[in-house]
Amino acid sequence: MALQILHNPRCSKSREALALLESRGIRPQVIEYLATPLSLDELRTLQRQLGAPVRAMLREGEDDYRELGLADASLSDTQLLQAIAERPALLQRPIVVDGDRALIARPPALLNDWLR
């Protein structure tokens, strides 16, 4: 499986991460997740690949985060993932996936050590 980047072309950090990959000769599969949202099952897999809490996947600064009350600590992981599936702008970006591991590349410089 080729390296993938969950990418938002309007996001400067996402563009930086893609440029960093390309500068290293890596041509990732680019997944514009706003146009092609991930399913609940795909998000569960992504969370396992990240090895991070579901909350780490959320963009807390988004209006949807506040409107949906996602700061509520009583919400389950499934409820949070469902919110991301329904409103993909809530997903952190960029995320780079390489086989069974993934990284939230924010800041993109995190990729330098991760790719070694």
Rank of each mutant, 00 (worst) to 15 (best):
S39I: 04
L38M: 08
G99T: 02
D63P: 08
G61Y: 05
R101M: 12
E60L: 13
P94V: 07
V96Y: 00
D63E: 15
P94S: 08
L91F: 07
R48C: 01
R55C: 12
A102K: 02
L91G: 09
M57D: 09
Q47G: 03
A83I: 02
A102I: 06
S39W: 01
G51E: 09
E62Y: 01
M57V: 13
V54E: 00
E32K: 13
L38T: 09
E32T: 15
A71P: 08
V97Y: 01
A102D: 09
A56R: 11
T36N: 14
D63H: 07
Y33S: 03
Y65H: 13
D77Q: 07
G69W: 06
G69A: 12
L80H: 01
Q49W: 01
L58A: 11
R27F: 09
L34Y: 07
V97G: 05
L50S: 12
A102V: 08
T78R: 01
Q29F: 05
D98E: 14
E67L: 14
L75F: 05
L43K: 00
D77R: 02
L80W: 01
E32G: 06
S39F: 04
L68A: 10
L80T: 03
I26D: 07
A89S: 15
R48W: 01
E32N: 15
R87M: 10
L91S: 10
L103F: 05
Y33K: 04
P53M: 08
I84F: 03
T36D: 09
Q47I: 02
L34A: 12
R27P: 05
D98T: 06
T45L: 14
G69F: 06
A35K: 15
E60R: 15
D72L: 11
D72H: 10
T45G: 12
P53H: 09
R87I: 12
E32R: 12
G61H: 09
Q29A: 14
A83H: 01
Q82N: 11
P37R: 06
P94D: 07
V54T: 10
A56F: 09
Q49R: 15
G99H: 04
P37D: 13
L80Q: 04
E42H: 04
L70R: 05
I84L: 08
I26P: 07
V96K: 00
P53N: 15
L103D: 01
G99R: 08
T36L: 05
T36S: 14
Y65E: 13
P94Y: 01
D72G: 13
Q92P: 10
M57P: 10
T36C: 10
R87V: 14
Q92E: 15
I104K: 03
D63K: 12
P53S: 15
G99W: 00
S74K: 10
L75N: 03
A52I: 13
R44F: 01
R93T: 09
P94F: 02
D98N: 14
E60H: 14
L43A: 01
R93W: 06
L43Y: 03
A85K: 02
D98I: 00
P94C: 06
S76N: 04
L90N: 10
R59F: 05
I95R: 01
D63V: 13
L46I: 06
E62N: 11
Q47F: 02
D77Y: 02
D63W: 03
R93F: 07
R55K: 13
L58W: 02
Q82W: 00
S74R: 13
L68K: 10
